[in-house]
Design a protein around this nucleic acid. Structure first.
Lengths: 196, 196
DNA sequence: ACACTAACGGCACTCAGTGCCACCGAACAA
DNA sequence: TTGTTCGGTGGCACTGAGTGCCGTTAGTGT
């Protein structure tokens, strides 16, 4: 596809994502049909489903690149660093958004963590992250990625990250990076705040 | 439906769940229509959706009771026991299935952890558990259930439990209780196996 | 015998997702 | 210019999940 002269048309994907985010935030995920999103983006319903395999996928902008960046961060980690610290560090780094991206990120995460349909769908995206982390841990420890420890690190660090996101959305005190760090510290230290 | 005298007809729910579990395990969740499940259970498609709000819900047998049992176990916990230990203990106890229930449990969990649609739907069920645990932690610590620590305990212990389930399904070495204990030990001790 | 109620089945409808096909514009070849 | 190929697109029809509405039926009480 080469940009014809008239409309930019280059990134119909970006237009769809923007339209989806705004419509879903405004009226709720279930109350907006895919046809309305497609119309708002200036494409047909059929083309919408060519770009995004699912209505829910429209709110996840290039998530594959996000996962790839996390994998690369882990690949480039100093082998001397403890495994768990490396994973947490990569998690924080991959979520280091600039101030300009924060409004969109808030809108996106609020939808994902609030709308039941998106909350359910997110599990499929999270599974990709979990797998990347589990494979990294498996590489470091020599275990199989399907063994308990690699899977456990993947699942629990992801749980911590999503908890940090949820708290960041509601509480306005701390930055996302600070909330992530707080959560990871609790997790890696065995929940020191609970031991009196 | 007119079999008043013949079939017990007492709990059509149980028949639906059995039929759904078998059909989904046999041919895959997406390849089986709700009408087929309804037919196999001897009810109409309309009645199927009266019993189960969703096709996916048919595989979760009385999950509300499961959550209620967990909440009760937590409520009856000795206040002297450390918070995290209490949560893990309750998790192990609520998942103490008898040998007769194990085959059905394996089938159910294999579906939930394998089929993408069920994997996604599971997030909505897990959220109920997370909330119960978070409320317990909040009661013990005096925080709000929406604060970071209560939420983090809920999300991470659940992640550990589901990881234990997944490993239990594939590895045949250890019992479910042992896998759960292994996972919880790693989590509560700050992943000792990763500190060399 | 009569009314009341709760559960059921049938029907029609919306909407997500998919397969099929026809169309159009760009690039390329003769 | 003419013809051909090709990737992106839109239209159309179809399946299947989920829902609202309504008529029917079984069970219960009086």
């Amino acid at each position: 596809m080469t940009q014809t002269g008239t409309a930019p048309a280059g990134d119909a994907r970006a237009r769809v994502e923007r339209a989806a985010l705004e419509l879903f935030a405004l009226r709720g995920f279930d109350a907006v049909t895919t046809e309305e999103v497609a119309d708002a983006a200036g494409i047909s319903r059929r083309t919408f489903f060519r770009h995004h395999p699912t209505k829910a996928d429209a709110v996840w902008g290039d998530f594959a690149r996000h996962v790839a960046r996390l994998a690369e961060l882990l690949r480039n980690t100093d082998p001397a660093r403890p495994i768990l610290a490396a994973v947490c560090r990569a998690y924080v780094d991959v979520n280091d958004y600039g101030p300009d991206d924060l409004p969109v990120l808030r809108q996106r995460m609020r939808l994902i963590l609030t709308e039941p349909a998106l909350q359910a769908h997110s599990q499929l995206r999270y599974a990709e992250i979990d797998r990347v982390v589990a494979e990294y841990v498996a590489r470091r420890t020599g275990e199989a990625p399907t063994d308990l420890l690699p899977r456990l690190v993947g699942a629990s660090t992801r749980a911590a990250a999503m908890t940090a996101f949820a708290v960041w959305l509601t509480d306005d005190g701390l930055s996302l990076r600070e909330q992530l760090t707080r959560a990871f510290d609790e997790l890696t230290e065995g929940f020191p705040s609970l031991r009196r």
